[in-house]
Design a protein around this nucleic acid. Structure first.
Length: 686
DNA sequence: CTAGGGTTAG
């Protein structure tokens, strides 16, 4: 064997086993032997560097080549793609189009995959076109890639068209189509196809099973899921508990709220991978079992086999954000700095989001300014965050700044800026951005965008216009947008429109407690007691329950949760005492009275005033006061609530902020309320 | 140099 062949084999081995150091040595030898211009060796070098994650080096080799063939180009594209740079691959692809080298089935396949990754169908369609013209379209590898590209770009019907006309299908074709339906959220079709393929004598493999299980968890179809689970066992796929399937199984049981079963599967897995870890951790977190979730995370951290990755970090950070666990979030932030995956953009973004959702805008701003890489999601997070804090002007500034830095806003960014404007009552600005959105052909409008406009108009009391907008919009109104209008009707006490909208909602979404509460409040305020009673009866008959109000506050790095009328806290008595004392102070100093009208829906008439006193947000604030948070010199007291703050509590906290000269930052289901010197940042619209 | 999968941030 000659030296050239020996080096080629060596390089291929380095590529396969990710031996960068050895590969670099071999590179040295190639150069020393004067083989630097050899086409095959250079191609192997490109591949080796790409596989070892050094696209920069691969690119350097590529640039210095006197002549290149299709393999050289394709190897580099593949390298870009595998290192997460799909756009790099595509731009290389178009550069290659200018040379006389023609793409082959590999080139097409890779760049179709890259287009799917980027997610712009028009881009992928162009490549599809090229495949057709050059006769590669019906090479199975290529047609599979085309099909896959369409599903990734959200054009599942195009993919299905392809699927139906493909002359030769293999297992991968079926898998791609099943995965496509699953990704789209069409679990029924995925399961149908799963059955159909078996009818055709095709034998599912692990990939088929994972997709199908995912379809089941999306549907919450626990029965079908566990059927597949047992078929997996009989098929022998689970004898050594294949990690891939196991991960999907854990996810299935988590999504169907069968945590015990999820834990049981998890315990059986011999080689636990990060997917199953993070699925289970999220499962516990989502059912509010934070202790168990954190304990699992600790276990994961100490188990040497697992380097925590960006997925785990960002999803856990999402939990901290939702629960506003500032301390845990900060600790995790500190932890991310020490590990490589902490640099993942999704991790950084999740930290930004966490700080904003915890009310720490300064921390978020600092991190945002220091982060070298920011994508459209990072900007959108900031815009949303400022918006929720009532800092609409700041949101707008960022919206312009991102565009001057050549980051294109997408549909979600527009949503963020619209809702920021509406929260801050910036009517003209909001209309201006909405019309900009309407003229931008690249961005698809959805109902949420219109809901922002409805919110804006509703806030301004222009309820007729808001209703007209819904009636005339080109999209089918959903429950959410009607609820937005209804709550505006409630704020402005508009019985006429409110009644109409409310009854529409009960027809559309008759099992949702929120609709009953809102409408009956509107009736009650207008003095329509009969209607009110009718709704209450219906509500009871259907066995509906309002979501329990829950608030929490962090004191000395410890989180305290309260429900409405909660008396389980050891300091309950002192809390009540403190609240009474505060009410008196507010009454005597600034003439505060209970906003009793907000409690009309609470059933017991005689205890109206009493029940107002024990709303969870008041209890949480009471605890903060009892614990001397003010005396400790904290200028801001942060409280979080799962539902919206009620009107009485709102008035109470305003008074409190004036009497105590303290800022209260309250995050409710909708936004942040900053109470300062007797005023609220929301301008009393909530 | 080759297509398909699972957990993830707005």
């Amino acid at each position: 064997m000659n030296e050239r062949q020996r080096l080629a084999n060596l390089l291929r081995n380095c590529s396969k086993n990710l031996l960068l150091d050895q590969g670099m040595q071999a590179h040295g030898t190639v150069m020393k032997m004067g083989l630097g211009f050899d086409l095959m060796l250079s191609n192997d070098l490109i591949d080796m560097y790409c596989k070892c994650g050094r696209t920069g080096m691969a690119c350097a080799v590529f640039d210095r080549m006197p002549e290149r063939n299709v393999v050289s180009w394709t190897a580099l594209m593949c390298g870009y793609l595998q290192n997460g740079n799909a756009k790099g691959s595509l731009s290389l692809f178009s550069k290659m189009g200018l040379s006389e080298i023609k793409p082959n089935e590999f080139t097409f396949s890779i760049n179709l995959k890259a287009s799917g990754f980027v997610g712009i169908a028009e881009n992928g369609m162009q490549i599809h076109n090229m495949c057709t013209k050059s006769g590669f379209e019906w090479v199975t590898v290529v047609s599979n890639s085309i099909l896959d590209m369409y599903t990734k770009c959200g054009r599942v019907s195009e993919a299905a068209r392809m699927f139906n006309v493909m002359p030769v299908k293999n297992l991968i074709t079926w898998n791609a189509m099943i995965a496509g339906y699953t990704l789209e959220g069409n679990g029924e079709r995925a399961l149908l196809l799963f059955r159909e393929m078996q009818g055709m004598g095709e034998v599912p493999d692990e990939y088929t099973i994972t997709s199908t299980l995912k379809a089941c968890s999306g549907l919450g179809a626990i029965r079908q899921g566990s059927q597949i689970h047992s078929s997996v066992i009989t098929r022998g796929f689970l004898c050594s508990v294949r990690t891939m399937i196991a991960g999907a199984l854990v996810d299935l049981y988590v999504k169907c709220s069968h945590l015990t079963e999820a834990q049981r599967i998890f315990d059986q897995i011999e080689q636990k991978n990060l997917v199953s870890w993070s699925a289970l951790i999220l499962g516990y977190a989502q059912e509010c079992n934070l202790l168990q979730a954190m304990d699992l995370f600790r276990q994961l951290r100490v188990s040497i086999h697992h380097q925590v990755d960006g997925f785990v970090l960002s999803s856990l950070m999402g939990v901290f954000a939702d629960f506003a666990l500032v301390e845990q979030g900060k600790q995790m932030h500190a932890f991310t700095i020490k590990i490589p995956s902490g640099l993942d953009i999704s991790v950084t973004n999740s930290i930004l989001d966490m700080y904003l959702k915890c009310g720490l805008t300064d921390e978020a701003e600092k991190l945002f300014n220091e982060t070298p890489v920011r994508n459209v999601i990072s900007w959108t997070i900031m815009i949303t965050g400022y918006g929720k804090h009532g800092l609409g002007r700041k949101s707008i500034r960022l919206f312009h700044q991102m565009q001057s830095e050549d980051i294109e806003p997408d549909g979600v960014t527009y949503l963020a800026v619209l809702s920021a404007c509406s929260h801050s009552g910036l009517v003209e600005e909001c209309q201006e951005y909405f019309s900009r959105l309407c003229h931008d052909r690249r961005i698809k409008r959805n109902v949420e965008h219109y809901a922002c406009m409805v919110d804006l108009l509703g806030r301004a009391g222009r309820l007729k216009e808001a209703k007209n907008l819904i009636d005339s919009m080109p999209l089918k109104p959903n429950v959410g947008i009607w609820q937005t209008l209804l709550s505006a009707c409630k704020v402005h006490g508009d019985l006429e429109i409110g009644r109409e909208v409310g009854e529409t909602l009960l027809r559309l979404d008759g099992d949702n407690p929120v609709n009953y509460v809102m409408l009956s409040n509107i009736y009650a305020e207008a003095g329509y007691w009969k209607e009110c009673e009718r709704l209450r009866k219906l509500f009871k008959m259907k066995g509906l329950k309002k979501e329990a109000g829950r608030s929490w506050v962090e004191i000395n790095k410890e989180v305290h949760f309260f429900y409405n009328k909660d008396e389980t806290h050891p300091l309950t008595e002192k809390i009540h005492q403190k609240l009474k004392e505060m009410e008196q102070r507010i009454k005597s100093e600034i003439g505060y009275v209970h906003g009793v009208r907000f409690a009309l829906h609470d059933v017991e008439e005689e205890s109206k005033e009493e029940s107002l006193r024990v709303h969870s947000e008041k209890l949480a604030i009471g605890l903060a006061l009892v614990c001397g948070e003010v005396e400790k010199g904290h200028k801001t007291i942060r409280v979080f609530k799962n539902l919206r703050v009620c009107g009485d509590c709102h008035a109470f906290i305003k008074g409190l902020s004036k009497v105590l000269k303290v800022v209260f930052l309250v995050r409710d289901a909708n936004r942040f309320h900053k109470f300062e010197s007797g005023l609220c940042s929301c301008g009393d619209y909530w």
